[in-house]
Design a binder for these strands. Structure first.
Lengths: 126, 126
DNA sequence: CTTGACCATGACATTGGCGTCAACGTTTAC
DNA sequence: GTAAACGTTGACGCCAATGTCATGGTCAAG
């Protein structure tokens, strides 16, 4: 299949597919006229990338997963490199959450001073 | 005082001060030679901006606070516009935290499948 | 042969808060 | 008078993942 069909089937733009290729994630074969030629496996790669992007991964983060799939594994996360990325991202997310909780507390504190009674309930507080 | 001194005293770069001016936050008087001339009140404005930026506000968010101070209020948050920004930012932070918790759960779920026992404790779990 | 739907590459725009040069004027001190 | 240290404006770079043109090749239907 060519890039337009893959884009439609994967629910992404052709621009994105070319960008993924440029970033070294999905390399397509080329037919005689220079058109990119894809197969079903490529559709899986794109799906993997999209699901990773939607949970906040970067394309760089997604590379090990794609490599894992291309290496023949049934899941992109079956490889130690992928697991390492998962663990790192989890730590990053935890850091962000911690930072946000601190910021929330600071803002809420200021708001309380400026306007007592204005503060809404905090995450997790009933 | 001129821009270099204000920058040193406020702990920011001259580049930032000029940028704040360009964004309409801090307008300096100009002396005959075209140099920006600041006073102590401007130092307070910059301090206000910095403290807001560090808790994740944008320069746009900071505008009402600066306006409040310039209007003569002792605190940048004494004006209803400022309070409104506080409330909005609080809601935004809560949204971000919610989104991050969702992402964390998704990533942790995937990691659990890929590598049982790898997942770290969640925020707030003892 | 032409229209239209594809495809290709290349390059600029977006968002925010600056860093960092460039190229040039001013002031200060020696 | 000249060098150092300051000031001015202007403009490009950065980061990420695209959107969106511009310009042009390919190909099937009519």
């Amino acid at each position: 299949m060519r890039i337009g069909e893959l884009a439609r089937r994967a629910g992404v733009s052709t621009r994105s597919l070319r960008y993924y290729e440029q970033q070294g994630l999905i390399m397509a074969r080329r037919s005689a006229n220079g058109y990119r030629e894809y197969n079903e496996a490529d559709l899986r790669l794109v799906a993997e990338i999209r699901s990773l992007l939607t949970v906040g991964f970067t394309l760089e983060d997604a590379k090990p997963f794609v490599a894992c799939l291309r290496a023949g594994h049934e899941s992109g996360s079956s490889c130690p490199e992928s697991v390492a990325v998962y663990r790192r991202k989890l730590a990053e997310i935890d850091d962000e959450i911690r930072a946000l909780l601190v910021r929330r507390a600071e803002v809420a504190g200021q708001l309380t001073v400026a306007c007592p009674g204005c503060v809404l309930r905090k995450q997790g507080e009933k």
